[in-house]
Design a protein around this nucleic acid. Structure first.
Lengths: 210, 210
DNA sequence: GCTGCACAGTAACATTAGTTACATAGGCAT
DNA sequence: ATGCCTATGTAACTAATGTTACTGTGCAGC
């Protein structure tokens, strides 16, 4: 694991900390679609993402979903940190969006490392910052954008994280993540196709120009 | 200041830290309506709220506003923390919702105290947690609730933080904070009055039963 | 090739929210 | 009282989004 670690976190953490992570962390690989955390779960470990992408979802009391943001390489989940520190249940669902590799850190280390390693403190603060900013972005999208703009933003983000111009999702899946209905998404996608921005195929959306 | 400090933060911080805060912190009183921070400002100090309430607003590129949440006694602004740590511009606007008292901490202390005081680290983490949770609540409201439900929630929150059944706001002000139009708010408020939940008067809304 | 099923296209309609326009009313300054 | 400004009430309309219902189509398994 040490090599995987160094490659991805070597610029952030000093050797002593890398060694400690190597000691107590466990390596984990998950396939796309794997549900890594469910709402209400207690959290026992904190993930450091090495590769892939994890989508973070919020759900209301009626079971309606909403995509909050994606975690990528080098990210950790601040909401997991929250749960670790406060020992509360998870308020979100986490699902692997692509095949992903992670290092799981038992929460016991958090406090100790926070005292001992400046770089760890910085990493944790930085993570909180990133997550807060992503949440602000999400709020902006929901509050200020119309559905067609949100859809465009979603497609662009998907292309960015999957590094692939073809998105393999059904309209229904997109509708769930944006918390709207399949008909609405189909309608808007068709409009985008008419505008020449995308090309629609069964289970696939080719992004031509966004 | 030490007494004000002890009353509000004595249960959180050890004496040594309280003394340090007393040394470097400056006491500040602001009147309702005072703009404490503007979008784009650089942040040089972190506020500890002693009494009152601060509203935190987000704005889009067209100048449209949205209320994110209120800070109350014992809170600090995690988004300010963010800015302090990362030395970035503020992404939000902060306005005193009621007359408020605060202690301002120069950001230089942050790093030092994080290493030295476990209680400080906990306070900072706790603040991030609270803010993340408030943001989740905000997202829930925007994404899952209809405008009438959001308005109800807003009124309830206003009553809670001002400890007063009469809300002194114009319909236009409420409309700004919920990012909708005055006509919509007037319409919905009138409906609530018809239902016997509130009583409308010029510049004042009496909450009877929510 | 047939069948069944999940996915996508589309029309017609309902609901919610935003907009425009104008009327009315409270309250202050003169 | 008069005039003026701000706040509120309301109707009528538009736009955006959500819903229902039905059609068409690609594809896997037989």
């Amino acid at each position: 694991m040490i090599q995987e670690l160094k490659n991805n976190y070597g610029h952030l953490f000093e050797d002593a900390l890398l060694n400690e992570i190597n000691q107590v962390g466990t390596f984990k690989e998950v396939a796309a679609g794997f549900k890594m955390m469910e709402i209400g779960d207690y959290v026992k470990a904190m993930p450091l993402l090495v590769s892939g992408a994890i989508k973070i979802l919020r759900e209301d009391t009626d079971g309606d979903e909403l995509l909050l943001y994606f975690l990528e390489k080098g990210d950790t989940c601040a909401l997991t940190l929250t749960c670790c520190v406060a020992q509360t249940k998870s308020k979100i669902r986490a699902i692997a969006e692509t095949d992903s590799k992670l290092i799981m850190i038992p929460i016991q280390q958090m406090e100790e490392w926070s005292e001992k390693y400046k770089s760890w403190r910085h990493f944790v603060f930085e993570s909180y910052n990133n997550r807060l900013n992503e949440m602000l972005e999400t709020i902006d999208s929901i509050a200020f954008l119309k559905m067609d703009e949100r859809l465009l933003k979603y497609l662009a983000e998907k292309v960015r994280i999957s590094k692939n111009n073809t998105i393999h999702k059904t309209h229904q899946e997109i509708a769930y993540e944006l918390h709207t209905s399949r008909v609405v998404i189909s309608r808007l996608l068709k409009k985008l196709e008419t505008l020449g921005k995308i090309e629609l195929n069964r289970n696939a959306i080719l992004i031509k120009d966004i």
